[in-house]
Write a protein that binds this DNA or RNA. Structure first.
Length: 475
DNA sequence: CCCCCATGTCATCGA
DNA sequence: CGTCGATGACATGGG
């Protein structure tokens, strides 16, 4: 039995080697190996398992690194998962991992929460979200923080007393107030990021009740906005984002994960002392982004295709995210592909604010231009291929011409040779009146246009042709 | 680290 | 004069 098994394995290995070397076995390989499919499936399952395990390990490693980062900076990162830290530890799913990373800049979490429920999230809910999810990572600073919050709140309230008509302005005012106050009150060393980065608020203050206070103020304002029949929180925050208000990240950070990546890089780039760590985290983060983009795709396409697809998805989803952030009434596909009339009608019927209008126009322009660029490049490539084909055709024609030229030259030589022989033959047959042959150095034969052949003396060939009339031979 | 390639984006031009 | 498509130039990201 063992012998049979060993023999079977040996034969399978041989067939496998032949098959890999593309040796024609005459029939399909499955004939030889009935277990092939099963083995492939097992291999695939094994790979999938390994990949999943690897991803889980990576996620875990990233979490550890992030935690380590915290310890190094002496900061604790609030994140959705940190709230649930009491729960039994389990491996983070892809979305969880991404969510944790997205929470790196603190406010991103709240913006994400806002974005995740883009239908209509009143500011009361924002305040609710902010407050219970804000553990105090620095209890020892709580007193100071509280004092500062009071001052900030007072400043915001002062700002709000002269209520601007534009809700976005209110938010900008709030943020400006916060940032001004924080800049003056705290040393840069307390800030989450260095002064080169754009985060203005000290991290601890953002983490703590400042946001709650801030949200309360926003809540107050929302009531005013509602009274004014203006768009409530969700639209307001969208405008707020669109107006590039400095919440400590650039606008892109608040819009999408891709740009958040940039924000993360920028914010971490000051950690020159741990460059390798940073690069590692960057790559981990990139992996996470791609994982969250489309996990199914990962399983089905080849590595090369996968990479191309990942790049495409990451690039292509920017406008999707922007559109989502501003709650555009049309899908990006519709924005790009609707006919002009339908598009114009759509954007006129849907009452869009300035930011939405600008974005929807930009998305359409970019989308159209993207397609135009693609077709332009395709035309260029087609033209290039056409020119290459033309070059090949011309080369072939040139070769044909060269061959013809050589053939003609050969034929010319042969013809000349024949003519020479014939000439000599004719010349040899010619005799004078005494029966002597003509000296070829003194005479020559010349063919006239009418086919008559003349025997002419060489020195006075043309001049004496007719006058001498020595001979007139018809050949 | 540099180069190459594919793709997206912007600026500009002409229809 | 505004819009749109074409295209060159540049940026970005991955191999």
């Amino acid at each position: 039995m063992d012998d049979l098994s060993a023999q079977f394995q040996h034969e399978s290995a041989v067939i496998d080697i032949l098959w890999r070397q593309d040796v024609d076995l005459g029939v399909e390989r499955e004939i030889f190996d009935g277990c092939l499919r099963q083995r492939e499936e097992e291999t695939m399952r094994e790979r999938t398992r390994e990949r999943d395990l690897k991803r889980e390990r990576e996620l875990e490693r990233i979490m550890q690194r992030l935690q380590k980062l915290d310890e190094e900076t002496g900061e604790c990162l609030p994140s959705p998962s940190s709230v649930n830290s009491q729960k039994p530890q389990k491996l983070p799913s892809q979305k969880q991992g991404f969510g944790e990373l997205a929470s790196l800049p603190d406010l991103q979490y709240y913006l994400d929460v806002l974005e995740s429920d883009s239908s209509s999230l009143p500011l009361e809910d924002i305040a609710e979200i902010c407050q219970p999810n804000l553990p105090d990572p620095h209890p020892e600073n709580s007193t100071d923080a509280f004092c500062c919050v009071s001052e900030l709140t007072q400043a915001i309230s002062d700002s709000l007393t002269c209520l601007p008509s534009d809700p976005v302005e209110v938010l900008e005012t709030c943020i400006q107030t916060l940032s001004d106050s924080s800049n003056s009150m705290y040393s840069p060393s307390n800030a989450v990021y260095s002064p080169e980065s754009e985060l203005i608020l000290p991290k601890s203050q953002i983490n703590d009740s400042v946001l709650s206070e801030f949200c309360s103020e926003l809540n107050t304002y929302t009531i005013n906005a509602d009274q004014l029949n203006m768009a409530p929180a969700q639209q307001t925050l969208s405008q707020f984002e669109e107006r590039h208000v400095m919440l400590g990240f650039d606008d892109s950070a608040s819009v999408g994960s891709v740009d958040l990546e940039t924000s993360l890089y920028e914010s971490l780039s000051n950690e020159q002392s741990d460059k390798d760590e940073l690069e590692s985290i960057q790559s981990d983060y990139t992996d996470l982004l791609s994982l969250s983009a489309d996990a199914m795709m990962y399983e089905t396409v080849t590595n090369a295709q996968e990479q191309t697809q990942k790049t495409r998805v990451r690039r292509g989803c920017r406008d999707e995210q922007r559109a989502q952030a501003l709650s555009l009434p049309l899908s990006v596909h519709d924005i790009i592909h609707l006919p002009v009339e339908a598009f114009n009608e759509a954007i006129s019927t849907c009452k869009l604010n300035h930011a939405q209008h600008t974005l929807i126009r930009d998305i359409r322009r970019r989308g159209k231009n993207k397609m135009a660029a693609q077709s332009c490049r395709k035309r260029k490539m087609d033209s290039l291929f056409g020119l290459e084909d033309e070059i090949e055709d011309l080369k072939r024609k040139k070769d044909q011409c060269m061959e013809e030229k050589e053939r003609n030259a050969r034929e010319l030589c042969e013809t000349k040779e024949k003519v020479g022989k014939l000439y000599n033959e004719v010349f040899r047959l010619l005799k004078d009146e005494h029966g002597n042959s003509y000296n070829p150095r003194e005479y020559k034969l010349q063919l006239s246009t009418d086919g008559t052949v003349y025997l002419l003396p060489r020195n006075t060939a043309h001049k004496n042709k007719m006058s001498t009339g020595d001979l007139n031979v018809a050949v």
